[in-house]
């Protein structure tokens, strides 16, 4: 099977969907000739023209608002916010407008809008370009939150997001655009709310998503050599969340480690920990362990930046602790 880069998988998903449905268009900053900050839209302006690849000024609120206005009038826009840090500039449009509009109007207005963005640390771009803010959107009723880790997942889930009749916050990670992975040539989509077992195991469940899936896989490999078998569950979509897959895995392993790059306070990880603890306390042989980013603005200095997010060693340590080893 062929392997392609994460960003190529995004581009393929967009092309397939835009060819399928003329109501789909792209809107965002530097998505024209520049091809997007991570080049996921390379060549799309030439393919679809400026009417469907709308290159905007730096106006984040209006990039989202324009998506809403077009979505409620019959189009299927993909609004791009270059960094998740910039969603702050569009929060009214995302939280008060997009998330509410279908429900608040009694289903009168449907809003099939995808807001594509990316987050995460590791590139030395400091505190305003490195955040993991998924918990904000996870918290707001009316938003779906998708965080794909692999090229396969990003393609299938982006296609599903574009076809969904609701608002989807589609969060990529800046460190994985060049990762390669198997992506079939044939068309496929991935349903929301279905976790993927990235590695099967029997001793401990590692629940993780986005870039931390890869650090967890590295940790699992190391632990395997020590005779510890890890099962890695990647929910792929945080809203809706595949609780069943998680609980089934915990039923098998009786141990849970949750790994996230975001800081722990008020995080998705702490919420999931609470869910498992309250719903499956009896299944757990030890308290749930969370491996998370430090409670800090992400520093510029590379040593400090790396110290602020989890690594393989942190995951290995947590797994051993939870197993009492």
């Amino acid at each position: 099977m062929r392997e392609i880069e994460y960003r190529e998988a995004i581009r393929e998903a967009i092309i397939e969907e835009m060819n399928r449905d003329s109501k789909i268009f792209l809107i965002g900053e530097d998505i024209g000739k520049y091809g997007g900050a991570f080049r996921a839209y390379k060549g799309l302006l030439d393919m679809y023209g400026p009417e469907r690849v709308i290159n905007t000024p730096i106006s984040e609120a209006t990039i989202v608002g324009a998506g809403i206005g077009a979505a409620v009038t019959g189009y299927r826009p993909v609004s791009e916010l270059m960094f998740i840090d910039f969603t702050t500039l569009a929060m009214d449009q995302i939280v008060n407008q997009a998330a509410k509009i279908r429900y608040m109007t009694g289903d009168n207005l449907r809003c099939p809008l995808v807001i594509r963005t990316q987050g995460g640390a590791g590139r030395g771009v400091a505190a305003q370009h490195s955040q993991s803010l998924e918990a904000w959107f996870y918290h707001v009723p009316g938003l779906k939150v998708v965080m794909p880790s692999t090229p396969y997942d990003v393609k299938g889930l982006l296609k599903t997001s574009i076809r969904d009749d609701n608002v989807v916050i589609f969060i990529e990670h800046k460190m994985i655009y060049l990762n390669k992975g198997v992506v079939p040539e044939e068309e496929y989509t991935i349903p929301f709310g279905v976790a993927d077992i990235k590695r099967e195991g029997s001793d401990v469940t590692i629940f993780t998503y986005s870039n931390m899936v890869f650090k967890s896989l590295e940790a699992a490999k190391e632990l395997e050599s020590e005779g510890i078998s890890c099962e890695i569950i990647d929910p792929r979509t945080l809203v809706p969340l595949d609780e069943e897959a998680l609980l089934n895995s915990v039923k098998k392993t009786n141990h849970l480690v949750i790994v996230t790059e975001a800081c722990e306070r008020g995080s998705v990880a702490s919420d999931i920990s609470a869910k498992v603890t309250s719903k499956a306390f009896d299944l757990l042989d030890a308290p749930v362990k969370i491996v998370a980013g430090l409670n800090t603005p992400i520093p510029y200095n590379s040593t400090l930046e790396q110290a602020s997010i989890p690594h393989k060693a942190d995951i290995v340590k947590a797994v051993k602790e939870v197993l009492g080893k």
């Binding site: 324009a66 826009p77 449009q93």
Partner: peptide, 22 residues
């Protein structure tokens, strides 16, 4: 396309309606 509880909240939405019309 909706009354709005946020002052100015509908103005960006009008841009999308405009794109749609165009």
């Amino acid at each position: 396309l909706g009354a709005n509880g946020i002052v100015g909240g509908g103005i960006p939405i009008s841009v999308g309606a405009g794109f749609s019309c165009k």
